[in-house]
Each structure stands twice: as C-alpha cells, then as structure tokens.
Simulated scan of single mutants.
Amino acid sequence: MKIRSITRWIAAAAIFLASCVPVSAESGQQIPELHTHAQAAALMDVTSGRLLYSSHGDDQLRIASLTKIMTAIVAIEHGDFNRPVKVSKNAFGKEGSSIYLKLGEEMTLENMLYGLMLRSGNDAATAIAEHVGGSEEGFVHLMNEKAQELGLQHSHFANPSGLDANGHYSSANDMAKLTAYALHNPLFHDIVKTQVKKAPNPNESWDYRWDNKNKMLRLYEGADGVKTGYTKKAFRCLVSSATRNGQQLVAVTLNDGDDWNDHAKMLDYGFKYFPLSQLMEKGESVQGYDLVVANTFKYPFADGEKERLEKKLVLFSPAREKAQDVNFGLRGEIRMVLDGKQIGTVPVYQKGSYLPEPNPRNPVKDALAPIHPSTLAGALSKVFKQLFLQQN
C-alpha cells in the first residue's frame, strides 16, 4: 500500500510539473524549468506564433485591463478615424482608472487609443466603444466576434474596459495569441511602445500628458509593450513584449505579485533558449526545380530541433491551378514539418514570375487559411474589403 501511494504521489507530481514546463519538443540541450509567481502564464514568439512556455495557460481567469488589448485592436480595425470621438455621459461617469475626459469633449480616435493603452482610461474605453460599436453592447459583440475569429477558445468579453463582470474572462494562452496578432498592426505596435504621449486638451491651456504605466518599458532592455491590469478580484495582470536581435516575444502573467521580475525572467528565457532562425528567404531558388520561394520564413528553435525539421515540396495539380485561377506563376508550397507537426508553409512560384508583396506575416491570422493574395479571388477579396472599409 505504501509503495502504491508513493507511486501515485510521483505520478501526480509529474502531471503538475508537466503543466509548468516549456512547450517544446525534445532537444539536444536540456532546457531548465521556468517558474513564476503567477496563477497562469504564457510566453509566445510573435513572428511564428509558437507558444514557448505555458503554465495553466488555458485556465479561464479575470484579466482586468488586459481587456483593452482587444478593445484597441477592434477599434483600430473597425473605427472611423475621420470622425472625432465624443464623450458621452456614460463614458464621463465610468468608474475606475481614467484619463479625466470631460462630458461632451471631443478627441481623435487615435489620441483616445493612446489614453486607453498608456493610462488605462476606462472613460476612454467606453467612449471608443460607443464610437465604434454604436453602443457598449454593440462593441462587445465585435470583441467576442474577433475572439471567435482568432480562435480564442477560453475568452469571453462583457465590457471594453476590463472591470470585473460575470462572463468576462480570458486565459494566458489566449492573451498571448491575441497580443501576437495585435502587434502585427503598425498603429497598435506604435501605441503600446510609447512611453510618453501628449495630446491637445480643449478644456485647458495645457496639453494632456500621458506617461505609460508599463514599467517594463523602462526596466527591460528591448521592451516595446504592452499593457498592465489590476482589479481587486483579478489582482495584478501584465502583458509585456520585447524585441532583441530581430525577435519579438510576448509574455503574459495573470494574478502575479512579482510580475516585473517574472516577465524579465520569462523574456530572458525565450531569447536564450528559443532564438529565431531564418529558414528561407524570398526569391531563394528551390534546389532541383525551376522554382523560387515567395516569402521569407523564420521560426524559433530550441537546441537540436532545427536538425529534425523536414521541408516537403507540394506541387499543385493542373486541375487545382485552374480551379484557383492561379495565373501568376504560383506552382505549389513548401511545408515545414517538425516532429510530425506542420509549423508553416511558404508558396513557391515559377522562376521569373512576379512575386506578390505579402502582407506582414501574422501567425494567428494565417491559421484562418486566408485566400492567397496572388489568386484572382484573393485580389478581388482585397479590393472589395478596401472599398467596404472606405465607405463605413
């Protein structure tokens, strides 16, 4: 009986430790365990979307003002930057952190997004939601629609600010995925890395001045985002990002009393043990074929993993080419497979073909299998989308 109890204890301990170790395949180098003080944590490479570390990463928890990451990206993608945002009575009286907007005050959406992300203004969050969604409820619908689109299976939003509410939650893994997606947007990236922002103040003789609450921007070399959060029920929450040697990482902790130190430790860990490597470069010839690759492809590898990578060339059949109206030289794709799992694909073109300028790689969006931009359908889709956005 005693031996059986010990065996059960060892098995339980192994399961617990498995939830706290890095998400990686076996490698030639022993990667040390990473521990934080967080209730849940995640670390992700932005370029590839690879999850490098996760501890209780799918637990559904309160996220406080980390919510505003979703608020910002939805506003950027749906907002009308030509119309000023007007502060309603509902926005003016919003509880919690504030940038002290006045009732009836008007401000550009862009400036209000800075107030939202740097100072975590709940008044700004409400004003933005009403401006973009027509109402808070309408905007929350867009937030949940975006969460579904991005495959955030452990997230649901009830408001744009992050105030504690029933049915308002996310997970460390989902927040890492959402932030990696958002950081591919140039405006979002510029906002969250800004340490100080000034904006016109129509009510006073001086400008607004917003100092970023995210101390990581000052404490950690290469830090370039993202958002702090706190409520009495969620406790301290933080999403940070940093870029070194061309590699950007996102770290997430939920309910962490030592988050500044934990984030520095997590980011150091990612840069050291999962450096970003370039696998192929746009225009590079495919050995043995009259083909070239269309995109540069990079991926973070632990020591020993790159040697196990398989590159599989898949050529499209003439029937498929005809069906997809591929008339710009697209001939197939190279699939990158690591330990039996496909980690990415790169289109290949007939040598001498025009290689379309791809949109910046967004691993979260790529997972949605978008229409390839070089096809006629892809071109038409892009045109219609642009026309629609210009009219709304």
Rank of each mutant, 00 (worst) to 15 (best):
L219D: 12
T253D: 01
C237W: 03
K193A: 11
A199Y: 12
T243M: 14
V239K: 01
S240C: 14
V192P: 04
M266C: 07
W210M: 11
D262I: 01
D258R: 11
N201G: 09
A264N: 06
K265C: 12
M216T: 12
K233E: 11
T194S: 07
N203G: 15
T194K: 11
G225A: 01
R244E: 09
L219K: 14
W210K: 04
S241R: 04
G229P: 08
S241K: 04
T228S: 06
W260D: 05
F188R: 05
E204G: 08
V192G: 05
I191W: 00
G246I: 15
R218V: 11
E221H: 15
A264T: 07
L254E: 00
V252C: 00
D256P: 12
A199F: 14
W210V: 05
V226H: 04
A223E: 01
D190W: 06
A223S: 05
K215A: 15
K197H: 13
V250T: 01
K215I: 11
K193G: 06
D190I: 09
K233Y: 13
M216G: 15
K193E: 11
K265Y: 08
N255D: 05
T253M: 02
G246W: 11
K265G: 06
M266W: 01
K197Y: 08
V252S: 00
A223D: 01
A264Q: 14
D256A: 07
T194R: 09
